[in-house]
Amino acid sequence: MKILVCVSKTPDTTAKISFTNDSTEFNASGVTFIMNPYDEWYALVRAVELVEKNGGTVTIINVGDASNDQTIRKGLAIGASDAVRINANPKSSLYIAKQIAEFAKAENYDIVFCGKESIDYNGSEVGAMVAEFLDLPFISFASKLDMNGNTASIERDIEGGVEMLEVQTPFVVSAAKGMAEQRIPNMMGIMKAKSKPFKVVEPVDFPDLSTPVKYHLPEEKGSVKLVDPDNMDELVRLLHEEAKVI
C-alpha cells in the first residue's frame, strides 16, 4: 500500500494568538509550533498502522518553508517512510492543495490522508481540494478506517451521528478523533528519522484566490456577573431578561 499523509504545522493549542503589521500578519514570535493534532494523532498514526499491518510506504507531504522541517522530522520519527516538502510560503488553501495534487498525481497513492482541519485556519478545505484536483472520492471526518484488500470500510462523523460506508482505493480521506491513538516517538524512531529520505521540491505557479487580509482579536468579555448559588431564580431571570437567551 502506498500512502501519502498531508501534514501542516500549527501553533500549539495553548498558544496566545496575536498579530503584527497593523493586524495583517500572524505574530509568530514566542509561539511554539506543533504538528496539527489531527494530522499527527489520527491521520499519520493510522497510516503507519496500516503499513505496519499490510506492508507499503507512508510518505509525508508538507507545503511550507524550511522552518517546517522539524515538524516533518517528527512525522518520520513516528514512523513515516519518507517525506517531501514543497518549498513555499502558502497563503491560501487552494494553493496548498494544488501543490499536493501536482506532486501526488504521478505517484498513484492508494490513500491520501489529511486531518479533519488545521487548527489555525480551520478550513477543512485542503483534503476536498486535493481530491477534486486528483478526481478521487473524498471521505471527510473519518473516525474509523479499516482496509480489506482494496476496499476501505469507513465510519465518518456527521451531525448527531455516524455514517458507515465503503470505498475502493484510490481515495482521499480526512481523519477525525477516534481513528487512532496518539504515538510518542521513541529514541529509536528519532534516530532512524535522521537517515530517512527527505526531499525538497519547488512549487508550481498558482494564484492565491482567497487570502486573509486583516485579523481581529475578540473583544474582551466584561467581567463575569456572579449569582448567589442559593438564588437560581435570579440566574434564570438574568438569562431571560438581560441575556435574552431563554
Binding site: 488553501s93 487552494l94 478550513g123 477543512s124 478545505e125 476536498a128 471527510s140 465518518r156 484566490l209 482567497s210
Partner: peptide, 23 residues
C-alpha cells in the same frame, strides 16, 4: 458549514477555480 457543506466546499472551489472561505 455542515459536514456535507464542508466536504463539498473545497471540491467546488477547485472545480470552479474559485476562491473560497469556510465558515
Amino acid at each position: 458549514h455542515t459536514s456535507t457543506g464542508k466536504s463539498i466546499l473545497g471540491r467546488l472551489a477547485a472545480r470552479l477555480n474559485a476562491g473560497s472561505v469556510a465558515g
